[in-house]
Nucleic acid binder design. Structure first.
Lengths: 223, 223
DNA sequence: CTTTTTCATTACAATTTTGTAATATTTGAA
DNA sequence: TTCAAATATTACAAAATTGTAATGAAAAAG
Protein backbone atom coordinates (compact mmCIF):
# COMPACT_ATOMS: atom_id res chain seq x y z
CA UNK A 1 0.00 0.00 0.00
CA UNK A 2 0.99 3.62 -0.42
CA UNK A 3 3.44 2.53 -3.03
CA UNK A 4 5.02 5.41 -4.91
CA UNK A 5 7.15 5.49 -8.04
CA UNK A 6 9.77 8.22 -8.18
CA UNK A 7 11.35 8.92 -11.55
CA UNK A 8 14.27 11.27 -11.01
CA UNK A 9 17.80 11.36 -12.44
CA UNK A 10 19.36 13.42 -9.69
CA UNK A 11 20.53 10.64 -7.40
CA UNK A 12 21.17 12.65 -4.29
CA UNK A 13 17.81 14.40 -4.55
CA UNK A 14 16.12 11.06 -5.14
CA UNK A 15 17.76 9.60 -2.07
CA UNK A 16 16.73 12.35 0.25
CA UNK A 17 13.20 12.40 -1.16
CA UNK A 18 12.80 8.64 -0.83
CA UNK A 19 14.07 8.77 2.71
CA UNK A 20 11.66 11.47 3.64
CA UNK A 21 8.66 9.82 2.00
CA UNK A 22 9.46 6.53 3.66
CA UNK A 23 9.56 8.26 7.01
CA UNK A 24 6.05 9.46 6.16
CA UNK A 25 4.85 5.93 5.65
CA UNK A 26 5.13 5.55 1.89
CA UNK A 27 7.11 2.86 0.19
CA UNK A 28 9.12 4.29 -2.68
CA UNK A 29 10.51 2.69 -5.81
CA UNK A 30 13.08 4.74 -7.65
CA UNK A 31 13.83 4.81 -11.35
CA UNK A 32 16.65 6.87 -12.81
CA UNK A 33 15.25 7.49 -16.25
CA UNK A 34 12.41 7.09 -18.70
CA UNK A 35 13.15 3.53 -19.78
CA UNK A 36 13.56 2.29 -16.24
CA UNK A 37 10.57 4.24 -15.07
CA UNK A 38 8.17 2.89 -17.64
CA UNK A 39 9.39 -0.64 -17.13
CA UNK A 40 8.86 -0.41 -13.40
CA UNK A 41 5.48 1.22 -13.84
CA UNK A 42 4.26 -1.54 -16.09
CA UNK A 43 5.50 -4.27 -13.79
CA UNK A 44 4.36 -3.06 -10.39
CA UNK A 45 1.30 -1.35 -9.04
CA UNK A 46 1.68 2.21 -7.80
CA UNK A 47 -0.70 4.60 -6.19
CA UNK A 48 1.14 7.68 -7.41
CA UNK A 49 4.01 8.61 -9.71
CA UNK A 50 6.39 11.48 -8.95
CA UNK A 51 8.02 12.61 -12.12
CA UNK A 52 10.97 14.85 -12.85
CA UNK A 53 10.49 16.90 -15.99
CA UNK A 54 13.98 16.64 -17.39
CA UNK A 55 15.53 13.22 -17.59
CA UNK A 56 18.64 12.03 -19.34
CA UNK A 57 16.85 9.71 -21.72
CA UNK A 58 13.55 11.47 -22.37
CA UNK A 59 11.27 14.10 -20.93
CA UNK A 60 8.61 13.87 -18.30
CA UNK A 61 5.80 14.91 -20.62
CA UNK A 62 6.09 11.83 -22.77
CA UNK A 63 6.29 9.55 -19.74
CA UNK A 64 3.18 11.17 -18.37
CA UNK A 65 1.23 10.73 -21.62
CA UNK A 66 2.33 7.15 -21.78
CA UNK A 67 1.27 6.44 -18.23
CA UNK A 68 -2.05 8.20 -18.62
CA UNK A 69 -2.80 6.34 -21.83
CA UNK A 70 -2.74 3.04 -19.99
CA UNK A 71 -3.95 3.90 -16.52
CA UNK A 72 -5.32 6.60 -14.27
CA UNK A 73 -2.60 6.46 -11.68
CA UNK A 74 -2.01 9.98 -10.37
CA UNK A 75 1.06 11.69 -11.77
CA UNK A 76 2.71 14.63 -10.07
CA UNK A 77 5.43 16.61 -11.76
CA UNK A 78 8.29 17.56 -9.48
CA UNK A 79 10.53 19.96 -11.21
CA UNK A 80 12.95 22.84 -11.15
CA UNK A 81 11.57 24.49 -14.25
CA UNK A 82 8.36 25.76 -12.76
CA UNK A 83 7.80 28.15 -15.62
CA UNK A 84 4.23 28.70 -16.59
CA UNK A 85 4.31 27.14 -20.03
CA UNK A 86 5.75 23.91 -18.65
CA UNK A 87 3.14 23.86 -15.92
CA UNK A 88 0.28 24.28 -18.36
CA UNK A 89 1.84 21.66 -20.60
CA UNK A 90 2.07 19.31 -17.65
CA UNK A 91 -1.64 19.56 -16.98
CA UNK A 92 -2.33 19.14 -20.65
CA UNK A 93 -0.63 15.78 -20.76
CA UNK A 94 -2.83 14.74 -17.86
CA UNK A 95 -0.82 15.52 -14.75
CA UNK A 96 -2.67 15.65 -11.46
CA UNK A 97 -0.40 18.25 -9.91
CA UNK A 98 2.74 20.15 -10.70
CA UNK A 99 5.17 21.20 -8.00
CA UNK A 100 8.16 23.47 -8.57
CA UNK A 101 11.36 23.27 -6.60
CA UNK A 102 12.21 23.95 -3.92
CA UNK A 103 9.94 21.31 -2.46
CA UNK A 104 8.45 21.93 0.89
CA UNK A 105 8.22 18.50 2.37
CA UNK A 106 4.96 18.74 4.27
CA UNK A 107 3.28 20.39 1.33
CA UNK A 108 4.60 17.65 -0.93
CA UNK A 109 3.08 15.00 1.29
CA UNK A 110 -0.19 16.90 1.45
CA UNK A 111 -0.31 17.08 -2.34
CA UNK A 112 0.54 13.41 -2.78
CA UNK A 113 -2.17 12.41 -0.36
CA UNK A 114 -4.59 14.72 -2.09
CA UNK A 115 -3.86 13.13 -5.46
CA UNK A 116 -4.23 9.62 -4.08
CA UNK A 117 -7.45 10.48 -2.31
CA UNK A 118 -8.96 12.05 -5.40
CA UNK A 119 -7.97 9.09 -7.47
CA UNK A 120 -9.55 6.63 -5.07
CA UNK A 121 -12.08 5.53 -7.63
CA UNK A 122 -12.18 6.00 -11.37
CA UNK A 123 -15.26 6.45 -13.51
CA UNK A 124 -14.00 4.18 -16.26
CA UNK A 125 -13.19 0.59 -15.48
CA UNK A 126 -11.70 -1.37 -18.27
CA UNK A 127 -10.65 -4.90 -18.89
CA UNK A 128 -9.71 -5.93 -22.37
CA UNK A 129 -12.52 -4.85 -24.71
CA UNK A 130 -15.07 -4.42 -21.96
CA UNK A 131 -15.57 -1.03 -20.34
CA UNK A 132 -17.76 -0.01 -17.45
CA UNK A 133 -18.67 3.65 -17.32
CA UNK A 134 -19.51 4.02 -13.66
CA UNK A 135 -20.46 7.64 -14.17
CA UNK A 136 -23.45 6.44 -16.16
CA UNK A 137 -23.82 2.94 -14.87
CA UNK A 138 -23.42 1.27 -18.24
CA UNK A 139 -21.22 -1.44 -19.63
CA UNK A 140 -19.91 -1.64 -23.17
CA UNK A 141 -18.13 -4.27 -25.18
CA UNK A 142 -16.38 -3.04 -28.30
CA UNK A 143 -18.28 0.17 -27.84
CA UNK A 144 -21.71 -1.32 -28.03
CA UNK A 145 -23.76 -1.46 -24.94
CA UNK A 146 -24.53 -4.67 -23.16
CA UNK A 147 -27.33 -4.69 -20.68
CA UNK A 148 -26.45 -6.02 -17.25
CA UNK A 149 -28.92 -6.60 -14.48
CA UNK A 150 -28.36 -4.80 -11.18
CA UNK A 151 -26.47 -7.65 -9.57
CA UNK A 152 -24.52 -8.58 -12.67
CA UNK A 153 -23.39 -4.98 -12.88
CA UNK A 154 -22.25 -4.91 -9.29
CA UNK A 155 -20.41 -8.16 -9.63
CA UNK A 156 -18.57 -6.97 -12.72
CA UNK A 157 -17.72 -3.66 -11.06
CA UNK A 158 -16.30 -5.60 -8.15
CA UNK A 159 -14.11 -7.63 -10.48
CA UNK A 160 -12.96 -4.67 -12.53
CA UNK A 161 -12.04 -2.52 -9.54
CA UNK A 162 -9.91 -5.44 -8.44
CA UNK A 163 -8.43 -6.21 -11.80
CA UNK A 164 -5.64 -8.75 -11.51
CA UNK A 165 -6.48 -9.45 -7.89
CA UNK A 166 -7.85 -12.76 -6.76
CA UNK A 167 -11.23 -12.58 -5.05
CA UNK A 168 -12.29 -15.48 -2.89
CA UNK A 169 -15.82 -16.79 -3.20
CA UNK A 170 -16.41 -15.75 0.35
CA UNK A 171 -15.34 -12.18 -0.26
CA UNK A 172 -17.50 -11.93 -3.34
CA UNK A 173 -20.54 -13.31 -1.58
CA UNK A 174 -19.97 -10.93 1.30
CA UNK A 175 -19.73 -7.95 -1.00
CA UNK A 176 -22.74 -8.76 -3.12
CA UNK A 177 -25.22 -10.68 -1.09
CA UNK A 178 -25.21 -9.01 2.25
CA UNK A 179 -27.64 -6.19 1.80
CA UNK A 180 -30.55 -7.26 3.88
CA UNK A 181 -29.41 -10.06 6.08
CA UNK A 182 -30.33 -12.36 3.22
CA UNK A 183 -28.10 -15.29 2.57
CA UNK A 184 -28.04 -17.12 -0.67
CA UNK A 185 -26.68 -20.48 -1.56
CA UNK A 186 -23.17 -21.02 -2.72
CA UNK A 187 -24.04 -22.17 -6.20
CA UNK A 188 -25.56 -18.80 -6.97
CA UNK A 189 -22.13 -17.42 -7.68
CA UNK A 190 -21.32 -20.11 -10.22
CA UNK A 191 -24.41 -19.17 -12.11
CA UNK A 192 -23.67 -15.44 -12.05
CA UNK A 193 -20.16 -16.04 -13.33
CA UNK A 194 -21.60 -18.06 -16.16
CA UNK A 195 -24.14 -15.36 -16.99
CA UNK A 196 -21.50 -12.64 -16.98
CA UNK A 197 -19.19 -14.70 -19.17
CA UNK A 198 -21.99 -15.30 -21.62
CA UNK A 199 -22.45 -11.57 -21.92
CA UNK A 200 -18.91 -10.21 -21.90
CA UNK A 201 -16.57 -12.90 -23.19
CA UNK A 202 -15.84 -13.41 -26.87
CA UNK A 203 -15.83 -17.14 -26.27
CA UNK A 204 -17.62 -17.84 -23.01
CA UNK A 205 -16.32 -21.41 -22.98
CA UNK A 206 -12.77 -20.06 -22.92
CA UNK A 207 -12.97 -17.05 -20.67
CA UNK A 208 -10.19 -14.50 -21.20
CA UNK A 209 -11.48 -11.93 -18.73
CA UNK A 210 -13.13 -13.69 -15.82
CA UNK A 211 -10.65 -16.37 -14.86
CA UNK A 212 -11.26 -19.22 -12.46
CA UNK A 213 -8.55 -19.87 -9.91
CA UNK A 214 -9.46 -23.33 -8.85
CA UNK A 215 -9.85 -23.78 -5.13
CA UNK A 216 -9.31 -20.10 -4.45
CA UNK A 217 -11.79 -17.94 -6.31
CA UNK A 218 -11.95 -15.81 -9.43
CA UNK A 219 -10.19 -12.81 -10.88
CA UNK A 220 -10.53 -10.46 -13.79
CA UNK A 221 -7.45 -10.15 -15.95
CA UNK A 222 -6.55 -7.83 -18.76
CA UNK A 223 -5.40 -8.89 -22.20
CA UNK B 1 -21.85 25.60 -17.57
CA UNK B 2 -18.35 26.33 -16.36
CA UNK B 3 -19.79 28.37 -13.60
CA UNK B 4 -17.26 29.50 -11.02
CA UNK B 5 -17.69 31.09 -7.62
CA UNK B 6 -14.97 33.52 -6.59
CA UNK B 7 -14.82 34.49 -2.94
CA UNK B 8 -12.37 37.36 -2.59
CA UNK B 9 -12.46 40.58 -0.58
CA UNK B 10 -9.95 42.48 -2.66
CA UNK B 11 -12.27 44.13 -5.16
CA UNK B 12 -9.75 45.16 -7.73
CA UNK B 13 -8.13 41.75 -7.76
CA UNK B 14 -11.55 40.12 -8.02
CA UNK B 15 -12.43 42.32 -10.97
CA UNK B 16 -9.34 41.55 -12.94
CA UNK B 17 -9.60 37.84 -12.16
CA UNK B 18 -13.25 37.68 -13.16
CA UNK B 19 -12.51 39.48 -16.36
CA UNK B 20 -9.74 37.14 -17.25
CA UNK B 21 -11.69 33.98 -16.41
CA UNK B 22 -14.63 35.20 -18.42
CA UNK B 23 -12.38 35.75 -21.39
CA UNK B 24 -11.39 32.11 -20.96
CA UNK B 25 -14.98 30.98 -21.24
CA UNK B 26 -15.97 30.70 -17.59
CA UNK B 27 -18.87 32.48 -16.05
CA UNK B 28 -17.93 33.95 -12.71
CA UNK B 29 -20.00 34.88 -9.68
CA UNK B 30 -18.25 37.04 -7.14
CA UNK B 31 -18.79 37.17 -3.39
CA UNK B 32 -16.97 39.61 -1.17
CA UNK B 33 -16.94 37.63 2.05
CA UNK B 34 -17.84 34.48 3.87
CA UNK B 35 -21.53 35.18 4.45
CA UNK B 36 -22.11 36.21 0.88
CA UNK B 37 -20.06 33.36 -0.42
CA UNK B 38 -21.88 30.64 1.43
CA UNK B 39 -25.24 32.09 0.57
CA UNK B 40 -24.38 32.18 -3.12
CA UNK B 41 -22.91 28.70 -2.98
CA UNK B 42 -26.03 27.25 -1.48
CA UNK B 43 -28.29 28.98 -3.95
CA UNK B 44 -26.54 28.37 -7.24
CA UNK B 45 -24.66 25.50 -8.75
CA UNK B 46 -20.94 25.91 -9.32
CA UNK B 47 -18.37 23.69 -10.89
CA UNK B 48 -15.53 25.17 -8.88
CA UNK B 49 -14.95 27.58 -6.01
CA UNK B 50 -11.95 29.92 -5.86
CA UNK B 51 -11.35 30.93 -2.32
CA UNK B 52 -9.21 33.62 -0.75
CA UNK B 53 -7.75 32.55 2.55
CA UNK B 54 -8.18 35.79 4.45
CA UNK B 55 -11.55 37.44 4.35
CA UNK B 56 -12.99 40.27 6.34
CA UNK B 57 -15.70 38.23 7.99
CA UNK B 58 -14.13 34.79 8.32
CA UNK B 59 -11.34 32.64 7.03
CA UNK B 60 -11.15 30.46 3.98
CA UNK B 61 -10.60 27.26 5.93
CA UNK B 62 -13.97 27.33 7.56
CA UNK B 63 -15.71 28.13 4.28
CA UNK B 64 -13.94 25.22 2.69
CA UNK B 65 -14.95 22.79 5.44
CA UNK B 66 -18.48 24.00 5.19
CA UNK B 67 -18.61 23.56 1.43
CA UNK B 68 -16.98 20.16 1.54
CA UNK B 69 -19.37 18.96 4.21
CA UNK B 70 -22.29 19.44 1.88
CA UNK B 71 -20.88 18.79 -1.58
CA UNK B 72 -17.91 17.67 -3.60
CA UNK B 73 -17.53 20.85 -5.58
CA UNK B 74 -13.82 21.48 -6.15
CA UNK B 75 -12.32 24.21 -3.98
CA UNK B 76 -9.10 25.96 -4.88
CA UNK B 77 -7.39 28.27 -2.45
CA UNK B 78 -6.02 31.41 -4.02
CA UNK B 79 -3.92 33.24 -1.58
CA UNK B 80 -1.04 35.49 -0.76
CA UNK B 81 0.03 33.55 2.29
CA UNK B 82 1.52 30.58 0.53
CA UNK B 83 3.35 29.44 3.60
CA UNK B 84 3.66 25.73 4.02
CA UNK B 85 1.53 25.35 7.12
CA UNK B 86 -1.39 27.12 5.50
CA UNK B 87 -1.01 25.01 2.41
CA UNK B 88 -1.06 21.77 4.35
CA UNK B 89 -3.98 23.05 6.35
CA UNK B 90 -5.80 23.87 3.14
CA UNK B 91 -5.49 20.31 1.90
CA UNK B 92 -6.54 19.04 5.28
CA UNK B 93 -9.84 20.86 5.12
CA UNK B 94 -10.42 19.21 1.76
CA UNK B 95 -9.08 21.68 -0.78
CA UNK B 96 -8.43 20.38 -4.26
CA UNK B 97 -5.55 22.75 -4.96
CA UNK B 98 -3.76 25.62 -3.35
CA UNK B 99 -2.24 28.42 -5.38
CA UNK B 100 -0.05 31.17 -3.98
CA UNK B 101 0.13 34.66 -5.37
CA UNK B 102 1.28 35.91 -7.72
CA UNK B 103 -1.12 34.01 -9.96
CA UNK B 104 0.05 33.08 -13.36
CA UNK B 105 -3.10 33.24 -15.42
CA UNK B 106 -2.60 30.32 -17.76
CA UNK B 107 -1.50 28.11 -14.92
CA UNK B 108 -4.55 29.16 -12.95
CA UNK B 109 -6.82 28.15 -15.80
CA UNK B 110 -4.97 24.85 -16.18
CA UNK B 111 -5.43 24.11 -12.49
CA UNK B 112 -9.10 25.05 -12.53
CA UNK B 113 -9.73 22.81 -15.50
CA UNK B 114 -7.80 20.04 -13.84
CA UNK B 115 -9.91 20.28 -10.70
CA UNK B 116 -13.14 20.31 -12.70
CA UNK B 117 -12.05 17.38 -14.81
CA UNK B 118 -11.11 15.32 -11.78
CA UNK B 119 -14.35 16.18 -10.08
CA UNK B 120 -16.47 15.14 -13.01
CA UNK B 121 -15.48 11.63 -12.10
CA UNK B 122 -16.30 11.40 -8.42
CA UNK B 123 -17.50 8.08 -7.11
CA UNK B 124 -19.99 9.49 -4.61
CA UNK B 125 -23.13 11.25 -5.76
CA UNK B 126 -25.24 12.76 -3.08
CA UNK B 127 -28.53 14.51 -2.81
CA UNK B 128 -29.97 15.13 0.59
CA UNK B 129 -29.96 11.84 2.53
CA UNK B 130 -29.57 9.70 -0.56
CA UNK B 131 -26.12 8.65 -1.73
CA UNK B 132 -25.06 6.72 -4.78
CA UNK B 133 -21.72 5.01 -4.51
CA UNK B 134 -20.85 4.63 -8.17
CA UNK B 135 -17.69 2.79 -7.30
CA UNK B 136 -19.85 -0.10 -6.12
CA UNK B 137 -23.03 0.58 -7.98
CA UNK B 138 -25.17 0.87 -4.88
CA UNK B 139 -27.58 3.43 -3.53
CA UNK B 140 -28.14 4.21 0.14
CA UNK B 141 -30.67 6.25 2.03
CA UNK B 142 -29.70 7.18 5.57
CA UNK B 143 -26.93 4.66 5.25
CA UNK B 144 -29.12 1.71 4.57
CA UNK B 145 -29.10 0.22 1.15
CA UNK B 146 -32.03 0.50 -1.19
CA UNK B 147 -32.18 -1.82 -4.12
CA UNK B 148 -32.63 -0.16 -7.48
CA UNK B 149 -33.19 -1.98 -10.73
CA UNK B 150 -30.70 -1.39 -13.52
CA UNK B 151 -32.75 1.34 -15.17
CA UNK B 152 -33.82 2.99 -11.95
CA UNK B 153 -30.17 3.17 -10.99
CA UNK B 154 -29.19 4.79 -14.26
CA UNK B 155 -31.98 7.28 -14.05
CA UNK B 156 -31.04 8.30 -10.54
CA UNK B 157 -27.36 8.58 -11.51
CA UNK B 158 -28.39 10.83 -14.35
CA UNK B 159 -30.31 13.07 -11.99
CA UNK B 160 -27.62 13.16 -9.34
CA UNK B 161 -24.80 13.96 -11.75
CA UNK B 162 -26.95 16.87 -12.88
CA UNK B 163 -28.02 17.97 -9.45
CA UNK B 164 -29.82 21.28 -9.58
CA UNK B 165 -29.97 21.20 -13.35
CA UNK B 166 -33.21 20.84 -15.21
CA UNK B 167 -33.44 17.81 -17.46
CA UNK B 168 -36.05 17.80 -20.18
CA UNK B 169 -38.10 14.69 -20.73
CA UNK B 170 -36.56 14.40 -24.13
CA UNK B 171 -33.04 14.48 -22.80
CA UNK B 172 -33.82 11.88 -20.19
CA UNK B 173 -35.46 9.56 -22.66
CA UNK B 174 -32.51 9.98 -25.00
CA UNK B 175 -30.04 9.16 -22.28
CA UNK B 176 -31.83 6.15 -20.91
CA UNK B 177 -33.83 4.52 -23.62
CA UNK B 178 -31.61 4.66 -26.63
CA UNK B 179 -29.46 1.61 -26.20
CA UNK B 180 -30.68 -0.65 -28.91
CA UNK B 181 -32.75 1.38 -31.25
CA UNK B 182 -35.66 0.64 -28.97
CA UNK B 183 -38.15 3.37 -28.38
CA UNK B 184 -40.49 3.43 -25.50
CA UNK B 185 -43.61 5.40 -24.88
CA UNK B 186 -43.60 8.74 -23.19
CA UNK B 187 -45.56 7.66 -20.15
CA UNK B 188 -42.79 5.28 -19.17
CA UNK B 189 -40.87 8.14 -17.66
CA UNK B 190 -43.76 9.17 -15.42
CA UNK B 191 -43.84 5.71 -14.01
CA UNK B 192 -40.11 5.53 -13.40
CA UNK B 193 -40.19 8.85 -11.59
CA UNK B 194 -42.95 7.53 -9.42
CA UNK B 195 -41.05 4.34 -8.67
CA UNK B 196 -37.89 6.22 -7.77
CA UNK B 197 -39.79 8.59 -5.54
CA UNK B 198 -41.42 5.69 -3.76
CA UNK B 199 -37.97 4.33 -3.02
CA UNK B 200 -35.93 7.40 -2.17
CA UNK B 201 -38.27 10.09 -0.89
CA UNK B 202 -39.27 10.38 2.74
CA UNK B 203 -42.73 11.36 1.63
CA UNK B 204 -43.20 10.27 -1.98
CA UNK B 205 -46.33 12.38 -2.29
CA UNK B 206 -44.28 15.49 -1.49
CA UNK B 207 -41.04 14.91 -3.28
CA UNK B 208 -38.09 16.87 -1.87
CA UNK B 209 -35.43 15.39 -4.14
CA UNK B 210 -36.92 14.66 -7.53
CA UNK B 211 -38.78 17.82 -8.40
CA UNK B 212 -41.20 18.29 -11.23
CA UNK B 213 -40.78 21.41 -13.31
CA UNK B 214 -44.08 21.52 -15.01
CA UNK B 215 -43.92 21.78 -18.76
CA UNK B 216 -40.14 21.53 -18.78
CA UNK B 217 -38.96 18.37 -17.13
CA UNK B 218 -37.51 17.21 -13.83
CA UNK B 219 -34.56 17.99 -11.66
CA UNK B 220 -32.89 16.67 -8.52
CA UNK B 221 -32.36 19.24 -5.81
CA UNK B 222 -30.44 19.14 -2.58
CA UNK B 223 -31.51 20.11 0.89
C1' DC C 1 -7.13 -45.43 -13.02
C1' DT C 2 -10.63 -44.26 -9.74
C1' DT C 3 -12.43 -41.19 -6.60
C1' DT C 4 -13.38 -36.83 -4.88
C1' DT C 5 -13.78 -32.17 -5.17
C1' DT C 6 -14.63 -28.11 -7.57
C1' DC C 7 -16.58 -25.64 -11.03
C1' DA C 8 -19.72 -25.32 -15.37
C1' DT C 9 -23.96 -25.78 -17.35
C1' DT C 10 -28.78 -26.46 -17.71
C1' DA C 11 -33.43 -26.16 -16.49
C1' DC C 12 -36.93 -24.39 -13.64
C1' DA C 13 -40.26 -21.70 -10.56
C1' DA C 14 -40.85 -17.54 -7.90
C1' DT C 15 -40.23 -12.97 -8.04
C1' DT C 16 -39.15 -8.60 -9.99
C1' DT C 17 -38.69 -5.55 -13.71
C1' DT C 18 -40.42 -3.32 -17.56
C1' DG C 19 -43.45 -0.90 -20.53
C1' DT C 20 -48.28 0.27 -21.47
C1' DA C 21 -52.81 1.81 -20.91
C1' DA C 22 -56.40 3.50 -18.29
C1' DT C 23 -57.77 6.56 -14.68
C1' DA C 24 -57.04 10.20 -11.34
C1' DT C 25 -55.16 14.49 -9.95
C1' DT C 26 -52.92 18.77 -10.33
C1' DT C 27 -51.77 22.95 -12.58
C1' DG C 28 -52.10 27.03 -15.20
C1' DA C 29 -54.72 29.49 -18.65
C1' DA C 30 -58.93 31.14 -20.48
C1' DT D 1 -64.86 28.87 -12.35
C1' DT D 2 -64.12 25.86 -16.15
C1' DC D 3 -61.27 23.65 -19.24
C1' DA D 4 -57.28 21.61 -21.23
C1' DA D 5 -52.78 19.99 -20.69
C1' DA D 6 -49.41 17.90 -17.92
C1' DT D 7 -48.21 14.87 -14.48
C1' DA D 8 -49.35 11.20 -10.89
C1' DT D 9 -51.09 6.94 -9.79
C1' DT D 10 -52.77 2.37 -10.43
C1' DA D 11 -53.21 -2.03 -12.43
C1' DC D 12 -51.72 -5.30 -15.54
C1' DA D 13 -49.36 -8.67 -18.76
C1' DA D 14 -44.95 -9.85 -20.98
C1' DA D 15 -40.32 -10.34 -20.23
C1' DA D 16 -36.28 -10.58 -17.51
C1' DT D 17 -34.02 -11.47 -13.17
C1' DT D 18 -33.04 -14.21 -9.35
C1' DG D 19 -31.92 -18.14 -6.65
C1' DT D 20 -31.97 -23.23 -6.48
C1' DA D 21 -31.27 -27.88 -7.61
C1' DA D 22 -29.86 -31.35 -10.62
C1' DT D 23 -26.60 -32.93 -13.91
C1' DG D 24 -21.99 -32.75 -16.42
C1' DA D 25 -17.23 -31.92 -17.00
C1' DA D 26 -12.69 -31.05 -15.48
C1' DA D 27 -9.01 -31.06 -12.28
C1' DA D 28 -6.54 -32.72 -8.28
C1' DA D 29 -5.79 -36.39 -4.92
C1' DG D 30 -5.29 -40.99 -3.77
Amino acid sequence: MRNILLIEDDISLAKSLSGFLQSEGFSVAHALGMTDGIELFEKENFECVLLDLSLDDGNGFSICSRIKSQSDTPVIFLTASADETCTVMGFEVGADDYIGKPFRPRELVARIKNAIRKHASQPLLQCSNVVIDTSRGVCRKNNSEIFLSALEYRLLVLFFTNKGILLSREKIMDELWTFSGEFVGDSTLNVYIKRLRDKIEDDPANPQILKTVRGLGYKAVDK
